[in-house]
Amino acid sequence: MTITDEAPNQLGYRQFRVGGFTFSRDEYFVTVEWPTGNHQMPVDHWLRCTQRDVAWGFFYGIVNFDSVIGTMNHYGTVDMFAGRFNEAYRRAEVDYNETFGHEELLECFKAMLSDWTNEGYDPFAAPLETGTAFGPSSGSNDEAVTRRRVVADRMVSVPGDEPLRSDDSGFPVNRAFADVDQGEPVIDAAPGYEDEVCSFNLFAYLSRSDVTWNPSVVSACKESLYCPTTEEFTLPVIHGNDRVEWFVQLSDEIQWDVEDRDTGSKRARVIMRAGDVAAMPADIRHTGYSPKRSMLLVWENGSPRIPEMIAKGEAPVHPVDF
């Protein structure tokens, strides 16, 4: 990664460069330039997108920041692209793609997040719960942008695994979940089995989440990962799948816009309410809208076999055949 040696601009922000891409910001916008074009997007949206891309290690498949800019994970290397999944850009031959080592692009994004996130702004938070991303450079919020992602080995609350959340550990109940029952299950473990008779209140745990649109692993059945998350406002990215992904709506409602992964043409809207289960096919991209903070269970298959299956075209595109 090359960070330009130039002094910060008059607003106090540094410019970043990786490969053929250059990134700069002003009070309201981020400008991305590449050898055949340039693009702008509001800085709050940019920070929310880069925050997820960093936290998820570029996630599965494609993370579109909008209809032009995004990343594509190859699990070791990662593409940064402009216009790659935009028919007009491709037709005009101004699309651009460059492949980086995973860590190289990650470090660039991390440095950008640190430098461009002002004190009081949290890219993970719902808009109603954080300050402004706009304006001249003003402090930083590294504590927020470097949060550790929860990844349970077996299950949250199992001794030695990820702990429960509480007021004391800095996780108060979110304002939108004030009515969620905080009672814990009744556990009666026989002597010697205290570490194996384990149960916890997942809904209470989620009610204390301080982030939005950020799945974390709460239980693992071998490679089957329960990755619940709390959602409010919009999923900032348009996630392009490379494998089938499953959702279970645990509370409230999310509406999903589903488009063709490669062309962006609309395929469906999926309305999910409490108790609904739906799969997202492997050849779509989607973004979600949650008007009230909701609980979503993202169910992932973390099998290391899948990237190879994808590369060989052997991964199922649709969830089930019937």
């Binding site: 409602e253 469906a268 809207r269 999926v270 309410r273 108790g275 739906a278």
Partner: peptide
């Protein structure tokens, strides 16, 4: 906060624009 139950649930659904609803395995 709206949770579902056997006695009280409101199922959503797939609103198709150009696709097959079976691809979403919605239940």
């Amino acid at each position: 906060t709206v949770f579902g139950s056997l006695e009280d649930y409101a199922k959503g659904g797939v609103h198709i624009v150009d696709d097959d609803p079976k691809y979403y395995a919605f239940s």
